[in-house]
């Protein structure tokens, strides 16, 4: 592996014990952190003069049920720094029985909808989110379709007009 990027080095210096793993597979800087550190890591990424990750590009999650990876879920954040032309991926593992993580809405208002989507599709709850409800699906929908144990063609009854839509 080539030399570590400045982002990974800076995060290691600041949060050594909370960093579980780092890699740069195919050139994508990736840092796996404990969920307690998420807000602090994000704040550092946003404010540090050498990093300046002002864009929260994306939030998503992965369900690792069908692999031997533990814990089962991972919430994935992508950040982009305009002045340094850098990207970084932050991953936070979450156990299936404790699907809660801090919301990033106070730092980036754009996180609002992304987090709602992750909640809708995976059932991850975001602490401190102002309006955590389904976004792509409807309230009557049961379950979280992107979990690996939800069959792709399991249909649910169509809501009658006048329902809560």
């Amino acid at each position: 592996m080539t030399a570590e990027s400045i982002t990974i080095r800076r995060l290691k210096e600041a949060f050594g014990s909370h960093i579980r793993e780092t890699h740069a597979y195919r050139g994508d800087d990736t840092v796996v952190i404990d969920r307690e550190a998420l807000v602090n890591v994000a704040t550092l990424l946003k404010q540090d003069a050498d990093l300046e990750y002002s864009f929260l590009i994306d939030i998503t999650a992965v369900d690792y049920l069908k692999t031997d990876k533990a814990p089962r879920f991972e919430v994935v954040y992508h950040f982009f720094s305009l002045p340094h032309k850098q990207r970084v991926r932050i991953k936070v593992p979450l156990a299936a029985d404790d699907l809660e993580i801090d919301s990033l809405v106070p730092l980036w208002p754009g996180a609002n909808w992304y987090e709602r989507e992750v909640y809708d599709m995976f059932g991850v709850r975001f602490r401190g989110h102002p309006n955590l409800k389904r976004i792509l699906l409807y309230e009557e929908f049961e379950g979280h379709p992107l979990r690996k144990d939800y069959p792709y063609n399991k249909r649910q009854p169509i809501v009658k007009p006048g329902g809560n839509i």
């Binding site: 699906l137 409807y138 929908f141 249909r155 649910q156 169509i158 809501v159 009658k160 007009p161 006048g162 329902g163 839509i165």
Partner: peptide, 13 residues
């Protein structure tokens, strides 16, 4: 989509 279906029905009616 399922979310859209009630709206379509309503418009048809």
């Amino acid at each position: 989509s399922h979310k859209q279906a009630p709206i379509l029905k309503k418009i048809y009616d």
